[in-house]
C-alpha cells in the first residue's frame, strides 16, 4: 500500500511524463519515418502496451490491496482474451485474401 501521505506525488508525475513521451514516440514513429507498415505496427503496438501497463501500475495501483494478485491475474486474463479475440478474428477473416 502506498504510504504517500506527505510530499510530492512522484509516481504520478513520472507516469504522466513517461506516458507523454510514449505517445509522442508512437506519433513520431508512425508519421515521421518510412519504415515498413508491419514494423511500425509492432513498434507502436509495443509502445501502447507499455503505456497501458504504466497506467495500470502507476495510476491505478493494480498490485495494491490484499487482493492485488487477483486483480493482476484478472486484468491479465482480460487482456489475453481480448488479444485472442482480435488476433483470431484477423487470422480467420484473412483466409483466402
Amino acid at each position: 500500500m502506498a504510504k504517500n501521505t506527505k510530499g510530492f506525488p512522484l509516481t504520478h508525475v513520472l507516469g504522466f511524463i513517461m506516458s507523454l513521451v510514449l505517445t509522442f514516440a508512437a506519433l513520431g514513429v508512425a508519421l515521421k519515418t518510412n519504415l515498413p507498415f508491419k514494423t511500425i505496427l509492432w513498434i507502436i503496438g509495443s509502445l501502447a502496451v507499455i503505456q497501458a501497463a504504466l497506467q495500470l501500475y502507476m495510476f491505478m495501483h493494480m498490485n495494491e490491496g490484499e487482493d492485488g494478485k487477483s486483480q493482476i491475474i484478472n486484468v491479465a486474463y482480460g487482456f489475453f482474451i481480448a488479444f485472442v479475440t482480435v488476433a483470431g478474428s484477423i487470422w480467420v477473416m484473412s483466409f483466402g485474401m
Binding site: M62, D67, G78
Partner: peptide, 23 residues
C-alpha cells in the same frame, strides 16, 4: 475487487469491438 473484475469484462467488451474494427 469486484470493480476490477468488472474492468476485466470491459477489456473483453472493447476487445470484441477492436476485433470487428481490425477485420
Amino acid at each position: 475487487l469486484g470493480f476490477w473484475i468488472f474492468l476485466g469484462a470491459e477489456i473483453i467488451l472493447f476487445g470484441t469491438l477492436f476485433a470487428v474494427f481490425s477485420v
